[in-house]
């Protein structure tokens, strides 16, 4: 197991390198540069700015300098649009996104998985259909609609809940709900689907015929395999949740990390962009590793250790 994890982390370094390469060249391929503004910035000034950020150097030098600074000093560069180190930006915004993401995850699992189980057990009944209809609502109503609706209908009418802002501890409720809603719906549908797949298999039929209660069969035998699709989905989904969401953050005025993915791209702020992309890549690697390990634990037939050889 230890060797497996170590191997995966080493592969992770290669992923980060590939990710860096792609992001670097994509960032360079975008039209415009960081110093393109609507004001009249003279060519002289632009030259000084480029020099200041090391952007006047040949491309291949720039390509090497950035990662070597990261490796030697843990320095992700200075953001051209915010005028402060990328390290600061990530270290100040990630904790916020983490809190929000954990809240959203709790909500998504706490609601999504039970709904999925109930639906699978009462398959093709009115209970199943209405629960799945609710899940569909969660999927069909996008965050930019849910958020404002919560603001207008809930926050404006309940004292203690603010329309937006991130200061008092209650503030994370509405954004976490909004962020987790889609995942809850996904989990409900995936859990139901995964369980149905298992429930029709021979070993479950055997268990039934042995006279075990349906609940026991589900919880003890079926759930492990039935959760496989959900677990595979949760890897990237959880990484996405804890790295923030532009829509949720801007609607609820949350100082999280998600907005930097969008703002950095629009401002052509390549250091911030590569910083958050690499950080997100790191989270994806970790979460997919966790999800793969969990897959192995849930279904002992999947021997994850094998691939490290």
């Amino acid at each position: 197991m230890f060797r497996f994890i170590l191997g995966r982390l080493l592969q992770g370094l290669l992923v980060l390198l590939a990710l860096y390469t792609i992001t670097f060249f994509l960032a360079k391929a975008m039209p415009g540069e960081p110093f393109t503004t609507e004001k009249n910035v003279s060519e002289t000034t632009k030259q000084y700015l480029r020099k200041l950020y090391g952007l006047e150097k040949p491309l291949w030098q720039q390509y090497i300098i950035y990662p070597s600074k990261i490796i030697s000093a843990g320095d992700f560069g200075v953001s051209t649009s915010k005028g402060r180190p990328v390290n600061d930006i990530i270290s100040q915004s990630f904790p916020v996104s983490l809190v929000l993401g954990l809240g959203a995850l709790t909500f998504a699992i706490g609601i999504g998985v039970p709904i999925g189980i109930i639906s699978a057990v009462r398959r093709n009944s009115w209970v199943d259909w209405s629960l799945m209809a609710v899940a569909m609502v969660g999927i069909c109503v996008p965050a930019f609609t849910v958020g404002p609706l919560l603001q207008i209908l809930v926050a404006a009418n309940i004292p203690g809940l603010k329309v937006a802002g991130w200061g008092s501890p209650l503030d994370f409720l509405l954004p976490a709900f909004t962020l987790g809603l889609v995942s809850a719906a996904y989990l409900a549908r995936l859990t139901r689907g995964g369980l149905l797949e298992i429930l029709s298999q021979d070993f479950i039929r055997t268990a039934h015929s042995k006279g075990l209660s349906p609940t026991r069969v589900i919880l003890k035998h079926a759930l492990r395999g039935g959760l496989l699709p959900s677990v595979a989905y949760l890897g990237p989904a959880f990484a996405a949740m804890i790295s923030g969401s532009f829509i949720v953050e801007t609607i609820f005025q949350v100082p999280g990390m998600g907005q930097h993915f969008v703002n950095a791209a629009i401002a052509r702020d390549e250091f911030l962009l590569m910083g958050v992309a690499l950080f997100f890549g790191f989270l994806i690697i970790l979460m997919n590793l966790a999800s793969d390990i969990l897959t192995g634990l849930l279904d002992p037939r999947v021997r994850i250790g094998k691939e490290a050889s």
């Binding site: 490796i71 992700f76 270290s91 904790p95 809240g103 501890p169």
Partner: peptide, 21 residues
């Protein structure tokens, strides 16, 4: 790669605080 000083606040204390509030 991402071994920068990312966080000093612990998220769990946040959650507990929010429950209290």
């Amino acid at each position: 790669l991402t071994a920068n000083n990312s966080t000093k606040e612990t998220p769990s204390s946040w959650l507990i605080l929010s429950c209290l509030f």
